[in-house]
Design a protein around this nucleic acid. Sequence first.
DNA 1: AATAAACCTGACCAGTTAGACAAGAATTGC
DNA 2: GCAATTCTTGTCTAACTGGTCAGGTTTATT
Lengths: 237, 237
Amino acid sequence: MGANAGSIVDNAGRHKGAKAVKESEPHKDSIRSQNERKILRAAELEFVRHGYKGTSMQAIADRADLPKANIHYYFKSKAKLYSCMLENITELWNSTLAEISEGDNPAQVLTRYIRTKVEMSMTYPEASKIYAMEIIQGAPHLHDHLRKRTRQWMREKVRIIESWIVQGKMNPVDPTHLIFLIWSSTQHYADFNTQVLTITNQLEYEQEDIDQITRFLCEVILGGCGLQPDLTVLGSC
Amino acid sequence: MGANAGSIVDNAGRHKGAKAVKESEPHKDSIRSQNERKILRAAELEFVRHGYKGTSMQAIADRADLPKANIHYYFKSKAKLYSCMLENITELWNSTLAEISEGDNPAQVLTRYIRTKVEMSMTYPEASKIYAMEIIQGAPHLHDHLRKRTRQWMREKVRIIESWIVQGKMNPVDPTHLIFLIWSSTQHYADFNTQVLTITNQLEYEQEDIDQITRFLCEVILGGCGLQPDLTVLGSC
DNA sequence: AATAAACCTGACCAGTTAGACAAGAATTGC
DNA sequence: GCAATTCTTGTCTAACTGGTCAGGTTTATT
């Protein structure tokens, strides 16, 4: 991923020699970006339900309410469309992590992190699901990302959590697996929403559920680290 | 699912009018059951990596080292083969839960349950992955199973955990979400094994990892419930 | 108004794949 | 040994789908 992630979407299907749109001002309501957003959203919904191969360009076109050839006009190929969609999602997904430092209060940071992840998982589950399917299938498109960015990110966070432990701010639990635990337990409510909703006999999540689950996870996970959830963060739910 | 789950596999491709095999003795080494097992295993590995539509019968045939027409002989269609495989996996997956009762010791039961799930997830991740993909895609084949069996199973377990809480054996945490937490955190090591291994820079899990992760999850989750992991169960790792 | 760029779209093509089928080979039961 | 049954397999087909393309319309620019 280069310095300008937006460029992946912009100019995707432009004719050779065409003047490039000013990249500094992505023109959020231009025909191009409007249609691209419509297509990407349609693609998410289709890919999530039927997988890569199981989704036809025609199905995406139908859902986006555009003729199929039009999809190919904006995104050269199915593979490109998929990559682009995945890139968007990965970016969104990685943006959930706040900057943290050794001086921070673990309870507050972890409470806020869990809350954010639960909120995102429950309000916009498609992102988590597509990411999950990609990893389950062996991460063919994300191997590099995992090896470089994600591993690096993990190293930083682990270092800081270790410093919290050394400072006696929390129990000595394995930081890597603590993060895995937060990821898995929060994303579960996105990836397995069908199962959760069916078992609890609900049609969809409500704000109340988000609050309750956040509180539950904070209690148990922080409790397991010898911490008390930060009530000021939880209270704002 | 009827009284005899094995019947789904047996007699799958038998010609009409053919005498059925004695169901009481499935003839584990007959040509039929031998080939069926080979095909089902090949199907798992292919379906996990490429999804339902992305997997061709030819690919399954190649992996099973049989001609394609042979796959159709044993399993009438791709859809039947997939259903059959899913059925097997669901059964295996549901068998992990021990019978529990109100008189049991929560620490011991939960420790053992976590250990079993971690072990299965790490030694045979395909089952968890296929189940996960099915749920992520909206559980088209498992909706009934979830609505009836899984929900019922959950009700029973919740009742027992609630009784433990009333007896003061553990902290008052929401039993439903406690079970979701155990499912998500343990299955994570199967479904996301690519991510976990890449981040931790390993090629595959070792026995040591299984032990360490089991210990970690028991500590945090049981700790969050106000319990101490059962060392006699953990010790046997 | 005129020119160019961007956008739209129906029709078409080539590759892939699930499944059918028929004819033959091996096995079993008597 | 001889049926009956089970198993094997090469070949064919109908359906689907990703992608191309030529010719059209609309929009922006000067």
